[in-house]
Nucleic acid binder design. Structure first.
Length: 650
RNA sequence: GGCGGCGUAGCUCAGUCGGUUAGAGCAGCGGAAUCAUAAUCCGCGUGUCGGGGGUUCGAUUCCCUCCGCCGCUACCA
């Protein structure tokens, strides 16, 4: 009676090459899938690529390719990447495949027919990067917070999916289903989003603007919004609605995602499923971001990018897999680096595990003709045996709780115990006289048997090396249950005379030395300044250079008109004249200290090259300077003489 | 500004539904051993469990507050 496990990674968007974030989520899902299979569970692992949308269309055009050809190219690099990392996916779905498109089309028609999709005109600020309109609330500093670009104003007719009506039950479901979203803090985040109106979801784009997408079956002038299309992959890959795989796996679906796509998976997707009349997935597992070696977001300019595929070629796929599973805690942001990988690899795999295999092999070959003897267990052997056969239960428990790191650590504890056992029993001393040869055989047998169990338990993380390890001892593999019996390594087994070093010790390459772990405090202040001021690097001690200052364009401006912004306490909308430079609208939070009628005619100092920002629906094109005392009283800064508006302030 | 999370040994992190001497791995120091991949094994930590206050017989664990970092959000611009 086996259990069912359906695990998915996101379908990765083909707008860029696979990177560490992709690799991490995919490796975690794969290690988990392999544990399920090892334990006899009926397991299905899905990954793939998401290939529609405006961004793909433009990216393809930029390099002179048809969208499909462009997508083909990137999709191939993902296939290659997962091959490199030994990902054991059962399927690789591309959203441009006919089997996916036909499911999306029928889902659309069904949801439309039942009245859950309607047409409406929409005007708003559109982010090309997100491929959607942003709400006022989402815009930060006049820009899309995810892409750092200024959204453009667009008006278009779109179809909308009635999503808002699903708020109540979804919130209830999240509240009453522990583990539906893990870690729990992300469930709280979703609940707080659901506590307010979520609106209906714009789920189409005019084909005239976005030719690259799945057409709406009832209106070919529109194509499906890329997320509405992509999310359906999780069921289309199973042959929804009546495929055998769908019936078998769907209700046990567990999605693995990064926190950047929480909203689509925790809100869009469940409401879509409900509208489709399909059961919800079983769980959503949210991972954090992987940061560069310095703890900051990876970026080329910081030179802290860690490429998992290069590391794989340098140190082996298993080294990368083991490092990601063992050292990177799931669900929170964490720093990854080549240095950390090498340390983990050397400590656990080379020193503890690889070396143990080496020393056992050496004595077997030298003193026992390379044959595994029949053991005669004594009291001294019981502790090792007990730990070994008890490991599977611990591993099952940890893996079930998504604690891969703890699961692997359980196994490593056992490896350390075997090393202790080896030292305590001193087989190299036993080998010195004939009388102790039987005891020598038992000790070495137990080491080999321990390594057999270890190799099976580590196999999900180390698919290649586990097999190599067993090969080097003449052993065969087995399932998880086969680790719960001691003595399955057959006496008489021939130990191969030659075997390559399993885990040669790794040295950190020189190139890596360049990324000095800059003094922590400096890095932090720099990061903070970057965030609050978006300025370039400055001299130390919070001081800025004259060049920095000159980047700020300060000008005298005259207030032409002023009115309070409706339904706000603090905001005034000012119309300012800059003389020959024209007029500006500025929103300022000074209503507590100035009445609208007091201001027209006054001269103020304006930061003229500030990024526009939208406040309460009004685009503010700058900031006026005011001083503030401890009690919050504001005093506008104004020039001492009546200079003409537009004059530069330095 | 609001809501939420985090802040535990040099580093990466566990943990404490309040209670004997707060843990692991890595790094470091000393020693043993020499079968082995300069690997292994043993021993070694006076850590204000972010600061302060409170509740309690007792708090790192609960409450309040402050500081720092992160996320979401907002009438900062």
């Amino acid at each position: 009676m086996s259990r069912i496990a359906y695990l998915t990674t996101p379908l990765y968007y083909v707008n860029g090459q696979p990177h560490m974030g992709h690799a991490y989520t995919t490796v975690v899902a794969d290690v988990l899938a392999r544990y399920h299979r090892l334990d006899g569970d009926d397991t299905y692992l899905l990954t793939g690529t998401d290939e529609h949308g405006e961004k793909i269309f433009t990216a393809a055009a930029a390099v002179g390719l048809e969208p499909q050809a462009y997508a083909d190219g990137i999709a191939a690099t993902f296939v290659e990447a997962w091959k490199e990392l030994r990902i054991s996916n059962d399927d690789f779905l591309r959203t441009t495949e006919a089997r996916h498109i036909s499911v999306v089309t029928s889902v659309l028609q069904q949801v439309y027919d039942q009245g859950d999709i309607y047409f409406d005109e929409y005007e708003g600020l559109y982010c090309v990067g997100c491929e959607r309109f942003l709400t006022d609330r989402e815009i930060v500093n006049g820009k899309c917070p995810d892409h750092g670009t200024v959204p453009e104003k667009r008006k278009e007719g779109n179809y909308f999916f009635r999503m808002d009506k699903h708020r109540q039950w979804l919130a209830e479901h999240i509240r009453t289903t522990p583990g539906f979203i893990r870690p729990a803090r992300y469930a709280n985040e979703v609940l707080s989003i659901l506590s307010e109106s979520i609106g209906d979801l714009s789920m189409s784009r005019p084909r005239s603007r976005v030719p690259w997408g799945i057409g709406l079956p009832w209106d070919d002038d529109h194509v499906t919004y890329v997320w509405f299309d992509a999310l359906i992959n999780y069921v289309s890959a199973l042959g929804y609605p009546d495929g055998e795989l769908f019936g078998r796996y769907w209700t046990q679906a567990r999605h693995f995602i990064g926190k950047d796509i929480l909203k689509t998976h925790a809100i869009f997707w469940p409401t879509m499923l409900r509208a489709m009349g399909a059961p919800l997935y079983a769980g959503l597992n949210v991972g954090g971001f992987l940061m560069g070696s310095d703890g900051q977001k990876m970026s080329k300019s910081l030179g802290n990018v860690v490429n998992p595929f290069e590391l794989s070629k340098r140190y082996s796929a298993d080294a990368v897999r083991y490092y990601l599973a063992k050292d990177v805690p799931y669900g929170q942001d964490s720093a990854v680096s080549e240095k950390a990988l090498v340390e983990r690899y050397n400590a656990d795999l080379a020193n503890d595990l690889g070396n143990l295999a080496s020393r056992a092999r050496a004595l077997l070959l030298r003193h026992l003709d390379g044959r595994l003897p029949e053991p005669v267990q004594t009291d001294a052997d019981q502790a090792v045996i007990a730990t070994g056969i008890g490991l599977a239960a611990h591993v099952r428990e940890q893996v079930g709780a998504l604690r891969l790191s703890a699961a692997l650590e359980e196994v490593m504890q056992f490896v350390r115990q075997l090393n202790r056992y080896f030292n305590d029993e001193q087989p190299w001393v036993l080998a010195k006289n004939e009388a102790s040869k039987p005891r020598l055989g038992t000790v070495l047998y137990n080491c080999v048997e321990g390594l057999r169990i270890t190799s099976i338990l580590l196999e999900p993380a180390l698919p290649d090396k586990a097999v190599q390890l067993r090969d080097s001892l003449g052993l065969k593999g087995g399932d998880l249950a086969s680790t719960e019996t001691w003595g399955l390594a057959p006496a008489g087994t021939v130990i191969p005379a030659e075997a390559a070093l399993l885990f040669p010790r790794a040295e950190l390459e020189e190139t890596q030395a360049g990324s000095q772990p800059a003094a922590q405090p400096v890095a932090k202040t720099e990061k903070k300044r970057e965030k609050t001021e978006k300025s370039g690097p400055a001299a130390g001690d919070g001081q800025i250079s004259i060049d920095d200052f000159n980047r700020v364009e300060l000008r005298v401006a005259q207030v032409v008109a002023c009115e309070a912004v409706p339904r706000t306490d603090k905001l005034l909308k000012l119309t300012l004249s800059l003389g020959d430079l024209g007029e500006r609208t500025v929103v300022s939070g000074i209503a507590g200290s100035y009445a609208p009628q007091d201001l027209p005619g006054r001269r103020v100092v304006l930061v003229a090259n500030l990024q526009p920002a939208k406040l309460r629906g009004i685009v503010s094109q700058g900031m006026i300077l005011a001083a503030e005392d401890d009690d919050g009283n504001l005093a506008l800064v104004h020039p001492d003489k009546e200079l003409a508006p537009g004059a530069r302030v330095r």
